[in-house]
């Protein structure tokens, strides 16, 4: 019983993180039609930022806020250089461009910061909270809380605010959105910066439990794509749900099948979804978004 609860807790805790990264990715896909392979690198930037700001004797929270701003600024520059000029060409070109950005950011940070992992420790990161034999580290609790808040905030922003309405309209039909007064280029900019900043926070949040190193973003990108495809490309609630589903599939397949096969099972689930319901499990309206 304890094991079952621990498995659920593990799955939810990881799922919250996956949801947060997938949220940024799906938002950017929805508005810009960009499959951003450099998404995970912004988590890396957020994590390195957190590490270096803490080296300057800032507290963890302050360091994380500053590094999310840094991630946003770098995102802004990258958008200008790598994506904005390609906005009218094939989506494939932007995808390739993002691949280049990913390689560039990884190599640049290897050059600047060395490939060796760095340790971030804050006051919560070491201790755990225990109830009925189930353990969850305080840092993971923080991740779950922050991630849920950000998912909720993003959902509210998109569904309830005037800005969110513009973003959704721009994502559904950019030309018509332009006709009705929405500056779609500017919306794409803001969305990109917002999306990578969300991922930057995820990087800062995971730094204390996963350490910080240049290639840390690659597996996050991969995970986020699985989540986004599962939840439906560009589908916000889908990304949030998808994050938790992937987290739970992983923990259950590790717990009840085999740890060696947990990735195999996650990817099998992905292929199954692609075959049966390629528009994503949470999609209601049929048809493609592109």
């Amino acid at each position: 019983m304890t094991e079952l609860i621990q498995i659920i807790v593990n799955g939810m805790a990881n799922g919250a993180l996956y949801a947060l990264i997938a949220l940024g990715l799906t938002l950017i896909y929805g508005v810009m039609n960009l499959s951003n392979f450099a998404q995970g690198e912004f988590a890396m930037i957020g994590a390195f930022g957190t590490y270096y700001f803490m080296q300057m004797h800032m507290n963890y929270l302050m360091a994380m806020i500053l590094s999310l701003i840094v991630a946003g600024l770098i995102g802004f520059v990258i958008h200008i250089l790598a994506f904005h000029p390609l906005r009218k060409s094939e989506p494939l070109n932007m995808m390739l461009s993002s691949l280049g950005v990913s390689v560039l950011l990884v190599n640049l940070s290897q050059y600047l910061f060395s490939p060796n992992p760095k340790v971030v420790s804050n006051s919560f990161s070491e201790d755990s909270i225990q109830a009925f034999g189930v353990f969850l580290s305080q840092q993971r609790i923080l991740i779950v809380i922050v991630s849920l808040i950000l998912c909720g905030f993003t959902y509210w922003l998109l569904e309830r605010s005037k800005f969110g309405r513009s973003v959704r309209a721009a994502s559904l039909d950019p030309d018509t959105a332009t006709l009705y007064g929405i500056p779609t280029n500017r919306i794409a900019f803001i969305t990109f910066v917002f999306g990578v900043a969300l991922t930057g926070i995820a990087g800062g949040l995971t730094a204390p439990i996963y350490n910080v190193y240049p290639t840390m973003g690659i597996s996050l990108t991969l995970k986020a794509f699985v989540v986004v495809v599962l939840g439906g490309m560009g589908n916000i609630p889908g990304a949030i749900m998808g994050g938790f589903i992937v987290g739970l599939i992983e923990s259950f397949s590790a717990g009840y099948v085999s740890t060696a096969f947990q990735d195999v099972i996650v990817f099998s689930a992905l292929f199954l979804v692609l075959i049966i319901k390629p528009e994503g499990i949470l999609s209601k309206v049929q048809g493609e978004k592109v």
Partner: peptide, 27 residues
């Protein structure tokens, strides 16, 4: 839908390329 599947396929292939590239990317 076909285009969507094509995109997914491209993404999966690109991910594999990415992995290979990162294994040895400096000149």
């Amino acid at each position: 839908m076909k285009r969507f599947k094509k995109m997914i396929f491209m993404m999966v292939s690109l991910l594999s390329i990415l992995t290979v590239l990162l294994a040895g990317c400096s000149a």
